[in-house]
Design a protein around this nucleic acid. Sequence first.
DNA 1: AATTAGCACTCTGAGAAGACGAGTGCTAAT
DNA 2: ATTAGCACTCGTCTTCTCAGAGTGCTAATT
Lengths: 337, 337
Amino acid sequence: MDGRKQRVLELLVEDYVNTGEPVGSRTLSRKYQLGVSPATIRNEMADLEVEGYLEHPHTSSGRVPSDKGYRYYVDQLLERPGLDRSLIQWIQDSYRARVRELTWFMHQTAKLVSDITAYPTLVIAPRVSDARLMELSLVPMRPGLAVLVLRMDSGLIESQTIAVPTELLGSDLAAMAAELSRGLHGVAVRDLENAIWRRLKGDLMRHRQFWEEMVQRLIEVADDEERVAVSGTRNMLNYPEFRDVDRLARVLGFFEKEAEIDRLVSGRSPVGIEVMIGAELPSLDIQDCSVVTAAYRVGRKVVGRVLVLGPRRMHYGRVIAVLETVSEELSRALEWA
Amino acid sequence: MDGRKQRVLELLVEDYVNTGEPVGSRTLSRKYQLGVSPATIRNEMADLEVEGYLEHPHTSSGRVPSDKGYRYYVDQLLERPGLDRSLIQWIQDSYRARVRELTWFMHQTAKLVSDITAYPTLVIAPRVSDARLMELSLVPMRPGLAVLVLRMDSGLIESQTIAVPTELLGSDLAAMAAELSRGLHGVAVRDLENAIWRRLKGDLMRHRQFWEEMVQRLIEVADDEERVAVSGTRNMLNYPEFRDVDRLARVLGFFEKEAEIDRLVSGRSPVGIEVMIGAELPSLDIQDCSVVTAAYRVGRKVVGRVLVLGPRRMHYGRVIAVLETVSEELSRALEWA
DNA sequence: AATTAGCACTCTGAGAAGACGAGTGCTAAT
DNA sequence: ATTAGCACTCGTCTTCTCAGAGTGCTAATT
C-alpha cells in the first residue's frame, strides 16, 4: 500500500472516529490539505474499498472503515499519543497509599478508566485454581463467629466472616487453624479438597464436619471471588450508533453474561495490550464494538485483565495509552497488596 | 369516592400497568365485565379527570393515571398478592447457610430482587457513624502486612488488608492491637479520631505515626464501606416509555449519582415499606419513575434500605410483597452475620 | 500515466398530504 | 341515571416528493 493510500485511510479512520459520519471524498480533501482533488481521493477510496479496507453504507454516501481497515490502522498507522503529565499523576494518585483488597482495586480501576476514556470498562479477575495457599488463620470474634483470612502465593490476601461451632473456644480455634495452616501450606487451591482428608486428625477430627464445611468456604473464598467489576456502561449512550435501543440492549446484556466475558479473555496472550475489532470478537452481542484489553499482575503473575469496550470507531490510540499506564500502576500497587 | 368510581380507577390502573397503553372506555367495559356501557364509564372517567386522578395524553386517546391516581390506588385499592411457595423458598435459599460480609449480602440482594421483579434494584447501606467499635484485631501476614478485623456493635464484621511497619514482629503487633482494642471498646466511630489520642501511650507511642494512620483506615473501613449495590439496570430497557434514549440516559445517570440516591433515602421513615410516585421523588432525574423501598436491619438496628425503581406504571402489589419477604429474610440472615 | 473537471445517477432523510382509527364529548332518547 | 348515536379531534402510518450529498464514469488536461 503506497504512502498516499495509507494517508487517505488514516485520515478517513480518524475523521470517522471523531464525527461518526461516513466520510466523503470532498470532506477529506477540504478538511485536511491533501493537495489533490476530490476525484483523486475518490479513486483511492474505490481502490481501498475493493481491497476490503473500506465499506459503503449505501451507494451515495461517504465511506466507513471495515474491520480490516481498522485493523490495518491499529497495526500500521496508529501513533500512540503521550498522556498528560497531570493525567498520569491522577492515575498514580488513585492507587497511592492504599493497601486494600483485590476487589477494591478492581472497582477503583474500572471507575478510573471509564472516567478517563468515557468508554465502559470491565476489570476481570480470572479464576486462579492454580494459586497455592500460603497461610490460613481464623480470628475468633464473638462465640460462633470467626474471620477466615487467607494468603495466597500470588500475594493476594482475602478474608471472610464464617460461622464456627459455638462450643469451640477462641484459643482452641486459633490453634487448630494454625495446625491446619501448616498442613496445607503450599497446596494448590484445586487440590485443597483432596488434601484436607489427610490433614484431619487429632483435635481436628473431632469437629470433622465443621472443617469439611470450612474447606468448602475456603475454596470459595480463594477461587470464586467476585469476578468482574464494571463501570461506565452508561457511556454507551453517548455514541449515536447505539441510540438504537435494541442494539444498546444487546451490548448492555453482554455486561451481565459472565460466560461471554470469560470467552473473551480466555486464550488471550498472557501479557500486554491486545485489540479486538468487530467480528474478531467471539461474542455475538458485541460484534459492532471493539475491545482493548491489558493484563495486570500481582507480583510476577498475570492475574487479570482490564477491558475497555467501545464502538468500533474508538479512540484506539488514547485508550491504549491509558491502559498501558493504568495496568502498570495497578500491577505496581498490587505488588505489595 | 363511590364504589364504582373506585372500581373504574382500579381497573384502569391495572390495565395501564399491564399494557402501557392509555386506556379507553370501550376497552375497559369490554375487557372486564363491568355491566355498564362505555358511555357510563366515560362519564366516570371525566369525573376522575376533573378530580385529578387521571390524565389525558391528548384529546382523542384513552386515559392514564396521574400521580394522585397511583397514590390513591396504592393507598386505598391495592391488594397485596401472596407470593408463590416456591418463590419464597428461592428467596430463603439465596441467604441460607451463608455467612458473609455485608457487601456480599447487598450485592446478592440487589441481584435477587432485580431478577424476581425485573426492575432495577439498589441496596443501600447508609453511613453508620454512630456505630460503636466492639473489637479490633490485627492478624499478621507476611512482614509489613496485616489484616485489620473489626466488629461493630451492630454485629457487622469487616476486614481489610493494611500495611504495617516492617520492623514490628507479628506477636508485638497482635499484642498492641489487643491493647488498643481494650482501650477503644465501645467508642463510637465518629469519636474514634479523638479517642485515639488518649489511648496512645507506652509501646503504642513508639509507632505513633503508624497508629494514627491505622485509625484513619479503621474509620474508613467502618464508616465508608461501599455504599450502594445496583443490579438489573438493564431491565429499564424493557419498558416502552424508556425506549427514548434521553429519558433512559437520565435514569441510568441517576444510578451513578450517590448524592441523589442519598437524598432519596435520607429522612425516610426508619422502618417498613414506603412507596414514592413520580413527582413525589426528590430527584429530578427520575420524575417519571416510582420507587418502592424497604428497610433492613442488623439485629434490631435499621442499617439500610432495599430500593426498587421502575416506571410509574409499576406492579406495586408484587414489588411490595417481594420486598416484604426479602427484607425480612435479609435481616434474619444478617442477624448472625 | 496520473490527475482533474464535469455530469448523470443513486440513495437517504426530511417534510407534506392524506387516510385511518381509536376515543372522546355532547345530545337526545330510554 | 344510563345509554345509543354521532360528529369531531388528534396522533400515527403510509405514501410521495424533493433537496442534498456523494458517487462512478468519461473525457480533457498536465
